[in-house]
């Protein structure tokens, strides 16, 4: 499990737009991350983490999964590659997380071609699913 500063080994994003604070680990095709919503989060408004924050949290979970794979393939010292959201589909947001709540997101990589990975994501607070989507992440070489 990686937390705090260690997350920077896995993803290229930096403050103020880091939207995961914990990475629980990855398997061949899955990854799991967490985020506790703090009041000073750049995507918080009126005590809630807005849609942009939820989606960015999902995207960075995918980035962290890619970061782990990258280290496995290219060595532990490999820096996280720059990556971007290519496409988002079927993204349902049931409700917005409130300050103090902890999100956990599971991602499953369903297909990969070259530098594009297709992933399915589910975000929960406790046992309650609050968001799900299909996301394509585009990674630079």
């Amino acid at each position: 499990m990686q937390q705090g500063e260690e997350i920077k080994q896995l993803i290229p994003q930096r403050e103020p737009i880091m939207m995961i604070d914990t990475f629980y680990g990855a398997t061949e095709t899955t990854g799991k991350s967490g985020l506790t919503v703090l009041a000073d989060n750049v995507f918080c408004e009126g005590g809630q983490l807005r849609e942009m924050g939820v989606i960015e949290h999902i995207a960075q979970t995918c980035a962290a999964y890619n970061g782990v794979k990258n280290k496995q393939n290219n060595g532990e010292a490999s820096k996280p590659k720059l990556g971007y959201i290519g496409e988002i589909k079927k993204c349902q947001i049931v409700r917005l997380p409130r300050v103090g709540e902890q999100l956990t997101t599971d991602v499953v990589a369903t297909a990969q071609v070259m530098n594009v990975t297709l992933m399915e994501a589910t975000t929960k607070i406790g046992d309650e699913t609050i968001a799900s989507c299909q996301i394509k992440l585009f990674e630079e070489d």
Partner: peptide, 12 residues
Amino acid sequence: SLSLVDLVALID
């Protein structure tokens, strides 16, 4: 390059 991955997912 983005939709090619849809093709792969579909066929798999």
